[in-house]
Write a protein that binds this DNA or RNA. Structure first.
Length: 489
RNA sequence: GGCCCGUUGGUCAAGCGGUUAAGACUCCGCCCUCUCACGGCGGCUUCGGGGGUUCGAUUCCCCCACGGGUCACCA
C-alpha cells in the first residue's frame, strides 16, 4: 500500500494591516494544497513579525478575521497553538540564534561588523562601476581573535550567510522545473540583524523545517531568493520542501494589484457588495484552472479537485467583470429566503417606507442583481414617484401611445380597485382577464401600468409585481396621478 | 544593467508532436417576454517574432522582442 504523506502547508503573512487579493489567494492555495486529496493535511498560520519597524497595531486582527470569514481555518497558529510553536517569529529569537551559531561554527555563516556607512559607500562604488552590488566580504577575513575582541567590545554586528565561491545551485519549483544559478551571482545575505532578529531569508528556512512544512507556497517575489534558501537547507543537512511560487495577480498587463494603486482589498470588495464565497471562488481562478471545467466551486469542492500542478506560471489580470459574473452566480443560486436576508440591508439603504412588500421586492431583485450594490439604484422610485416624462408611456414595440395608455389605465383602475387581496397572483388573474376581455396584447395593458407605478423605463419586475410591492393604496394613488396627467394632454 | 521567470482570443484559461486549438467571462444576434433582467440557442476574436529539429510544430531547441521579479540589517 502506498504511503501517503500528510501535507503541511503554511500561510506566513507579515502583519502590515492589509489583506490584499494576492495575499488571500496565496493563503487559499496553501489551504487547498493542505486539504486536497484523500487525507487532509495541516494548514499552519505563522506570523512573520521580524521587522519591528513595520509592525502595525491590530494588523493581526485583519488577518484572523479575513481567514475566518472565508473559511480558511488554520489547524496550528499563534492563537490555537500546536506541536511546533511558537507560531510568532518574534518569539522564536533564541531558536534562530542557535541555528545561526551552528552555521558560523560550520563555516557557512560569519559575523559582520561593517556599519551602514561603509556598506552604503561600497554599494555606491559598485553601482558606479557597473557591477552588481554585493557584500565584499570584508569581515570574512577577520581572525577568530579579532572577532572575539569585537564581540567582547560590544560592537554592533550581524550574521551573514557564506555563499560558496564557485559552482551552481539548483532548486526545483513544482511548476517551473529545475532552476539553476551561479553561486557567484548570489550575495552573502544577512541572516541575523543587528537587533538580533532574523531576516525573513533565514527565519523562513528554519521555521519551515522545524514546523515540518512539506510544501512552501508563496509569491514569485521569492523565486530569485530560493537558491540561497537551498544553500541553507544543504548547510543544515535538511530535506528541502517542495516549492510553489505563485504568479502575481495583476491590475493590468504591467502592474500588480496593490494597495499603493488603490486597488481593492478583500475588505473593500465586501464593502462593495461582493459575497465572500464568490470572492474566494473568483480569486482561486486567477492562476488556477480546475480540471473538469466547472468554475463555480465552494471551498470544499475546490479542495477536492485542487492540485498545485494546475497552477499556472504566468501572471493573471484581475477582471472585475468576471468577478461580477461569479458573484451573480452565487446570488442566483441562493434560495429566495437566503437572498432576502442578504439583500435586506441594501434594500433598506434605499427604501425608507415600511408599507412595501419587501419579500416580493427581493424576489424581483434576485435575478437583476450581480453585486449587492446594484440594489439601491433600482429602488429610487419606491419612496417617491419620480417626476417622469409622459413620453415613457409611448412604446413602439408595445404599441402604446398617450391615448392607448390613458385608455388602458382607465380600464385598469376600477379592476384593481375591486381587488381585495392585493397580491401578485390575484392582481395577475384580474388583469389577464381584462386583457382577454379587451382582446389586446399584454403590453397594451401592462406597459402603461408599469410606467404609471414606477415612472421609470426599467424596473425590477413588471407592472403586476410592482403593484403588489407598492400595495393597493400607493398603487391606486399613482394610477390616478397618471390618468390625471394623461387626461390633461 | 546583471541574474531569474514568463508570453494561447479583450480577460481567465485547456492543451503537454498530428485537435475543426476545449471551456468560462465580455461583446453581438435570435428566442422567451408587461420594461430591464433571468433562462435557452447561435456567432465574432487567439498560439509575440525569427530560425532550427521533425514527415509534421501551439507543443522540443536556439536567438530576438515584450512583460514581470530580484539585486535591503522589508517581507
Amino acid at each position: 500500500m502506498l504511503q501517503t504523506v500528510r501535507e503541511r502547508t503554511r500561510f506566513a503573512p507579515s502583519p502590515t494591516g492589509y489583506m490584499h487579493v494576492g495575499n488571500l489567494r496565496t493563503a487559499l492555495y496553501a489551504y487547498l494544497a493542505a486539504k486536497a486529496g484523500e487525507t487532509p493535511g495541516t494548514f499552519i498560520l505563522r506570523v512573520e513579525d521580524t521587522d519591528q519597524e513595520r509592525f502595525v497595531e491590530g494588523a493581526m486582527d485583519v488577518i484572523y478575521a479575513t481567514l475566518r470569514e472565508t473559511g480558511l481555518v488554520w489547524d496550528e497558529g499563534p492563537d490555537v497553538g500546536g506541536p511546533v510553536g511558537p507560531y510568532v517569529q518574534s518569539e522564536r529569537r533564541e531558536i534562530y540564534k542557535q541555528y545561526a551559531e551552528q552555521l558560523i561554527a560550520q563555516g557557512d555563516a560569519y559575523y559582520c561588523f561593517c556599519d551602514k556607512e561603509r556598506l552604503d559607500e561600497m554599494k555606491t562604488l559598485q553601482r558606479a562601476s557597473g557591477i552588481a552590488p554585493r557584500y565584499d566580504r570584508h569581515c570574512l577575513s577577520l581572525t577568530p581573535e579579532e572577532i572575539a575582541a569585537k564581540l567582547a567590545a560590544g560592537i554592533p554586528h550581524i550574521v551573514r550567510q557564506r555563499i560558496p565561491d564557485h559552482g551552481t545551485v539548483t532548486f526545483h519549483d513544482e511548476i517551473r522545473e529545475d532552476i539553476t544559478v551561479e553561486c557567484c551571482t548570489l550575495d552573502d545575505q544577512v541572516l541575523i540583524k543587528a537587533d538580533e532578529m532574523p531576516t525573513y531569508n533565514f527565519a523562513n528556512v528554519v521555521d519551515d523545517h522545524l514546523m515540518g512544512v512539506t510544501t512552501v507556497i508563496r509569491g514569485t517575489e521569492y523565486l530569485s531568493s530560493a537558491p540561497k534558501y537551498n544553500l541553507l537547507y544543504q548547510a543544515f543537512g535538511w530535506e528541502i520542501p517542495r516549492y510553489l511560487h505563485c504568479p502575481p495577480v495583476m491590475k493590468d498587463a504591467t502592474q500588480k494589484l496593490s494597495k499603493r494603486n488603490g486597488d481593492a482589498s478583500y475588505q473593500d470588495l465586501i464593502a462593495k457588495g461582493y459575497l465572500k464565497d464568490a470572492i474566494l471562488n473568483y480569486i482561486a481562478l486567477l492562476g488556477w484552472s480546475p480540471r473538469g471545467g466547472e468554475e463555480i466551486l465552494s471551498l470544499s469542492e475546490m479542495a477536492r479537485v485542487f492540485s498545485i500542478y494546475d497552477v499556472s506560471k504566468s501572471p493573471a489580470v484581475f477582471d472585475p467583470i468576471k468577478l461580477n459574473f461569479v458573484n451573480a452566480e452565487y446570488l442566483r443560486r441562493m434560495t429566495p429566503a437566503q437572498f432576502y436576508e442578504t439583500a435586506l440591508p441594501w434594500i433598506k439603504q434605499a427604501v425608507k417606507g415600511d408599507h412595501f412588500n419587501l419579500r416580493l421586492l427581493a424576489e424581483a431583485l434576485h435575478p437583476r442583481c450581480e453585486v449587492l450594490s446594484d440594489i439601491p439604484g433600482q429602488l429610487d422610485f419606491l419612496d417617491v414617484l419620480p417626476d417622469y416624462d409622459l413620453a415613457l408611456f409611448v412604446s413602439k414595440k408595445m404599441k402604446t401611445d398617450f391615448a392607448v395608455a390613458l385608455n388602458s389605465l382607465q380600464e385598469i383602475q376600477p379592476i384593481l380597485e375591486n381587488v381585495m387581496e392585493f397580491t401578485a397572483p390575484v392582481i395577475h388573474e384580474a388583469l389577464f382577464s381584462l386583457i382577454e376581455t379587451l382582446g389586446c396584447k399584454n403590453g397594451i395593458v401592462l406597459w402603461p401600468l408599469r410606467v404609471a407605478l414606477s415612472g421609470k423605463q426599467f424596473t425590477p419586475g413588471g407592472g403586476i409585481e410592482l403593484a403588489a410591492i407598492l400595495g393597493k393604496t400607493e398603487s391606486m394613488r399613482r394610477l390616478g396621478m397618471a390618468i390625471e396627467r394623461l387626461s390633461a394632454c
